[in-house]
Structures are given as structure tokens and as C-alpha cells.
Simulated assay, not measured.
Amino acid sequence: MHLSAGATVAAIGAGTVAVLVIGAVLVGMFLAISITAGSLVVVALVARSLLNSSHTQR
């Protein structure tokens, strides 16, 4: 099967767009996971601080 020059360019363009879109989605998911993990760390630190302060005041 021989592709014309236009079809080859279109195939390369479509492949490039697909890779960029998939990359953007993966980076977005990674950022969302990182932000969620950071938020959980902050909540854990605040909860630990509150629990420690309540134990020391008794």
C-alpha cells in the first residue's frame, strides 16, 4: 500500500496530535494526583497537630 504525499503528511499530523493530546491528559492526571497527595499531607499534618495539642493540654 502506497500513500500519497498528502496522506503521509496527514497521517504524521494525526499521530502527532494524538501523542500531544495523550501527553496532555497524562500530565493533567499527574498534576491532579500530586495536588491531591499534597492536600492529604497538609490535612494529616493539621490533624496530627490538633491531636497532639489536645493531648498536651489535658
Rank of each mutant, 00 (worst) to 15 (best):
residue 7 A to Q: 13
residue 26 L to F: 08
residue 20 L to D: 04
residue 51 L to Q: 09
residue 53 S to Y: 11
residue 27 V to L: 11
residue 18 A to S: 06
residue 20 L to R: 10
residue 36 T to H: 10
residue 47 A to V: 11
residue 12 I to G: 00
residue 15 G to V: 04
residue 1 M to C: 06
residue 13 G to W: 05
residue 6 G to N: 12
residue 8 T to Q: 12
residue 55 H to W: 15
residue 1 M to K: 07
residue 3 L to W: 00
residue 54 S to D: 14
residue 5 A to V: 11
residue 44 A to E: 02
residue 8 T to C: 11
residue 33 I to T: 10
residue 40 L to V: 06
residue 8 T to Y: 02
residue 48 R to L: 08
residue 6 G to M: 06
residue 40 L to H: 05
residue 35 I to C: 01
residue 3 L to A: 02
residue 44 A to N: 11
residue 1 M to N: 03
residue 15 G to C: 08
residue 17 V to E: 10
residue 10 A to R: 08
residue 4 S to W: 01
residue 57 Q to L: 14
residue 54 S to M: 14
residue 49 S to W: 12
residue 58 R to D: 15
residue 2 H to E: 15
residue 44 A to W: 09
residue 42 V to F: 03
residue 53 S to Q: 14
residue 24 A to Q: 01
residue 6 G to H: 05
residue 2 H to P: 00
residue 52 N to R: 11
residue 38 G to H: 06
residue 34 S to V: 12
residue 5 A to R: 08
residue 16 T to M: 07
residue 26 L to E: 06
residue 50 L to A: 11
residue 8 T to F: 05
residue 19 V to N: 08
residue 56 T to L: 15
residue 20 L to Y: 07
residue 44 A to H: 04
residue 39 S to F: 03
residue 1 M to Y: 06
residue 15 G to F: 04
residue 19 V to S: 09
residue 47 A to H: 00
residue 14 A to S: 06
residue 6 G to P: 00
residue 37 A to H: 08
residue 28 G to V: 00
residue 10 A to W: 08
residue 18 A to C: 13
residue 23 G to A: 06
residue 43 V to T: 13
residue 44 A to Y: 03
residue 27 V to Q: 03
residue 39 S to N: 12
residue 54 S to Q: 14
residue 36 T to A: 14
residue 50 L to D: 08
residue 2 H to Y: 08
residue 32 A to D: 06
residue 23 G to P: 01
residue 21 V to P: 03
residue 5 A to E: 11
residue 24 A to T: 11
residue 57 Q to S: 15
residue 32 A to V: 04
residue 35 I to G: 00
residue 35 I to F: 07
residue 49 S to C: 06
residue 44 A to T: 07
residue 12 I to V: 13
residue 35 I to Q: 09
residue 32 A to F: 07
residue 46 V to E: 08
residue 3 L to S: 01
residue 52 N to A: 14
residue 27 V to P: 00
residue 6 G to K: 01
residue 44 A to P: 01
residue 1 M to W: 00
residue 55 H to N: 14
